[in-house]
């Protein structure tokens, strides 16, 4: 049984294809200007090797901020539910998921079956999300993928006190002008993100094991500061960006098994 999960996020669109419960393909592409275009492309990418078309999927479930904009989807499910489901599939011992994506961040409590039991999500502010890191990478002229490794070289992370992306940008520019090293600045940025995530998630709690998903989970600096604050190692899936799409695909499979039309 072929099913597909699509996660249309603010920064990237992801597709995961399951065949009889086994992941056979996935793809991650920038969302860009058009949700429909991004969906078509990511599906084309994911299905190319398999020589499949949309008609071959017995069910498609979408998630992410663009989830309601996909005309051929059978169901749209919030990304919080999908991240819990996906994380539970890959990391069954996880009872908390920290998901930091391009536009939002969440702390999710889940049970042993991958059901959400509590959650908290950031409000309209971009501070503490992938977008925040993107802005800072651009200000510091550092490729996004190098940010994590650079911050690990810091001996003394700066204190970035602003909780707003715009104000923090000014703060970083000012600190750079005083001669602060890029490493210390980046480490300060990552420490700030970790600190905001911990504060936000306090009402849910960080019960072990804690998984870290979303694009920002690839950033070793943020991971390190989160681990220090929580006091335990975070479980990071091999490809943390596709967990929402994987969860959507798993729900598609469950729907099909339960006879949903």
């Amino acid at each position: 049984m072929l099913v597909c999960g699509l996660d249309i996020g603010a920064a990237t669109t992801k597709a995961v294809i399951l065949n009889d419960g086994r992941m056979v393909s996935y793809s991650v592409l920038p969302t860009g200007q058009s949700v429909n275009l991004a969906t078509d492309k990511v599906l084309e990418n994911a299905t190319r090797k398999l020589e499949l078309g949309i008609a071959d999927f017995s069910r498609v479930v979408t998630t992410g901020y663009g989830r309601h904009a996909v005309p051929f989807a059978h169901r749209a499910v919030s990304e919080i539910i999908c991240h819990a489901k996906g994380a539970n599939f890959l990391l069954p011992s996880a009872r908390t998921v920290i998901d930091i994506g391009g536009q939002d961040s969440k702390v999710i409590a889940l049970d042993g079956d991958g059901n959400v039991t509590n959650f908290v999500m950031n409000d309209k502010c971009a501070a503490g999300t992938g977008r925040f890191i993107e802005v800072m990478a651009s200000v510091l002229e550092v490729p996004l993928e190098d940010m994590g490794a650079l911050s690990l070289r810091s001996g003394k992370p700066c204190m970035i006190s602003s909780t707003c992306t715009v104000f923090a940008e000014s703060e970083v520019v000012s600190l750079r002008a005083t001669g602060e090293s890029r490493e210390n600045l980046i480490a300060g940025i990552h420490k700030g993100i970790a600190s905001r995530t911990i504060t936000m998630g306090r009402s849910v709690g960080f019960h072990k094991d804690v998984a870290f998903t979303g694009g920002v989970a690839k950033n070793l600096g943020v991971k390190r500061y989160l681990e220090t604050a929580i006091g335990s190692q975070l479980l990071v899936p091999e490809e943390p960006q596709i967990i929402g799409a994987l969860g959507a695909a798993l729900l598609a499979r469950e729907d099909k098994a339960q006879g949903s039309i």
Binding site: H68, I80, I81, N115, T117, F119
Partner: peptide, 19 residues
């Protein structure tokens, strides 16, 4: 604020309560 921006939280809450 935007109602649309709350959709994720509200849908998840509905799912959680129903479960």
């Amino acid at each position: 604020f935007s109602a649309e921006s709350m959709r994720t939280k509200i849908e998840t809450f509905g799912h959680l309560l129903a479960a």
